[in-house]
Simulated assay, not measured.
Amino acid sequence: MTLPPSPSVSPTAPPSGRFNFLPGIRTRINLWRGKKQFQGANLRGANLGRVDLIGTMLLWAVFAWAALLWMWLPEARFVGVILIWANLLWTILVWINLREANLQPGRSSLKKILLLGILLIWATVLWSIVVAVKSDRSILLWANPNVAFILWALLGKVDLSNSNLSYTNLSRANLNRVDLRDANLSYANLQKANLREAILRGANLSYADLRGAELGESDLQEAVLLGANLSGTDLSDANLSGVDLREANLHRSNLSAANLSWARLNRANLSWANLSWANLSRARLVHANLNDADLSGGDFREALLYGAAVNQVDLNAVLVKGAKFGQNAGLQDSECIKLKARGAILNSQIDITADQKLQEY
């Protein structure tokens, strides 16, 4: 299949192994403005990951600020105490809200919450003007960390769901725990990107370059990775249920304990892949290349392995009840006897109709 040429990107890029903060900040600002069109953009090394540490530090700063005001300003009285602790309570609620990885609050509701925080800050500032003439410690009132906290709340959580990132250069980018559900990442360059715990449910990653990327514990349910290059990729503990990996290159990838149930892996290259303890129940592996793969502890129950190559593969520690084998290169007669005894369906018992073949491909 001839692939369309990738559009040229800017040659400027951060040094290897470092994150580029400016593209990340620009992207966060564009997202807050509602822009999700990044087709062909050069975001190499962009830091778009969750910055929970900064939020936690700001939360503690607000707590310390509130405690100092409460102890050092006897002039605060009732109104001041209410404002001080209202600031702290609002900060805690926003911090908890934004730490939820799967939460998708509406833009309008989030803006209302942040508007409340801005009103609290201004109320505190106006109150500080009144107190300023009575206390030499009123400078503390002007050092309200909630100003920085609002900026963190605005830019800290990256929501790239339904965004267009096709042909985008995201190599070495930090996308840890970023929400990318239903995003278009077709033909994107994601080499050595950090996508650990990212939400890629329903995303289109067709023909994307994910060589060396980290996708451990990510959510890729129903994602499309047709023809994607995942060679050497870490997908351990990832949720790949129902994913489309037809013709994908998974050579030497780590799929240990990954959930690949109902996945479509027809003609995929899984040679030397680590599939130990992976769940491939009801997966389709028609004409897949499993040569030298580690399948120890894998669950292949009711999977379709018609035409799959299994040279140098140990099938003794694999669950195969209901799995369908046929015309498998590397499958010895002695192994066929063992597979049949363990409930596998062998070549003579398989009836693959023309309609089924079309469905598999």
Rank of each mutant, 00 (worst) to 15 (best):
W90G: 01
G106M: 04
A61C: 08
L140F: 15
A86I: 05
W70R: 05
G106E: 05
I96W: 08
I92N: 03
R107D: 02
A123S: 14
W72K: 13
L140I: 15
S138H: 13
N47Y: 09
W60L: 13
I54F: 08
L120S: 01
M57N: 07
K134V: 11
L103H: 07
N102V: 10
R50S: 06
L89Q: 09
T91D: 00
A76S: 15
W65P: 01
K111D: 07
W90N: 03
A66N: 03
N102M: 07
I139R: 09
A66P: 03
S138F: 14
T56H: 05
L115Q: 07
W70L: 11
K112C: 00
E75A: 15
A86N: 04
A86W: 06
L88D: 01
W70D: 14
L103P: 00
W60K: 09
A123H: 05
I129V: 14
F63R: 04
G80P: 00
S109V: 09
L119E: 02
V94A: 05
R77A: 15
R50P: 01
L83F: 07
N97I: 00
W72C: 11
S108A: 10
L68M: 13
W72L: 15
A101F: 04
V62M: 10
Q104A: 08
M71C: 10
L126H: 07
V133M: 09
K134C: 05
I92G: 00
L116F: 04
V125I: 15
I113R: 03
A143R: 12
L141I: 14
L116Q: 07
S108I: 09
I54V: 14
L59V: 04
D136E: 14
I113P: 00
L110S: 08
